[in-house]
């Protein structure tokens, strides 16, 4: 476990160090380039902010109205059989469809059950290990006017399914 923590903690500083050192060695104006990129970060957050507000309100409403509990109760016998935490279910269903709403749901799970709780870890791992499949397929195929995507949707949903299941199993195993 200590080794895992060490690797986890090392990855980010090591990469920042490597990149900045490379920039210096190649005599780039490292800080100016950094600022160019950082400005872009600003516009990304600005562009997702309205989505976050809209979805937070809708998801907050789902939670406070009690309907999520109703659906989860309805599904729980099935989920219990396969030992899948029912709180993760909405995230698992929305992750391939909408990036912004799955971020909102994952954040909600982390807030309500604790960032470092088992559920918080599972939600984080699902978010880090999967992609907004439908959006990606749409962008990549429509840019070259492809109509027939063959088996791509099925194959990528298989990948998402495996990714979500493994996230649950790994986080259970580590805690």
């Amino acid at each position: 476990m200590e080794m895992i923590n060490f690797i986890s903690n090392l990855a980010m500083p090591f990469i920042i160090l490597l990149i900045v050192a490379y920039g210096l060695i190649e005599k780039k104006k490292v800080f100016d380039v950094f600022l160019d990129g950082a400005k872009e970060g600003l516009s990304i957050v600005l562009s997702i902010f309205p989505t976050l507000v809209g979805l937070f309100v809708a998801i907050g409403a789902l939670r406070s109205s009690g309907i999520i509990d109703l659906i989860v109760n309805f599904l729980s016998p099935v989920l219990e059989i396969i030992k899948f935490p029912s709180e993760i279910m909405p995230l698992a269903l929305l992750r391939p469809i909408s990036g912004s709403s799955s971020i909102a749901i994952a954040t909600d799970i982390m807030k309500n059950y604790g960032v470092d709780s088992n559920l918080g870890m599972i939600a984080s791992t699902i978010m880090g290990s999967t992609e907004t499949t439908l959006y990606t397929i749409a962008v990549y195929t429509s840019c070259v006017k492809i109509k027939k995507t063959r088996f791509v949707l099925v194959a990528s949903l298989i990948a998402d399914f495996v990714g979500i299941l493994v996230s649950v199993v790994v986080c259970r195993f580590l805690s």
Binding site: I4, N5, D116, S124, S167
Partner: peptide
């Protein structure tokens, strides 16, 4: 306010590699 925000890096590697292999 996570005590260890990067603790998920390792689980993410495992999950993402399994998903990629499946895909």
């Amino acid at each position: 306010g996570s005590e260890n925000p990067t603790a998920i890096v390792f689980p993410v590697w495992i999950a993402t590699i399994c998903a990629a292999i499946a895909g």
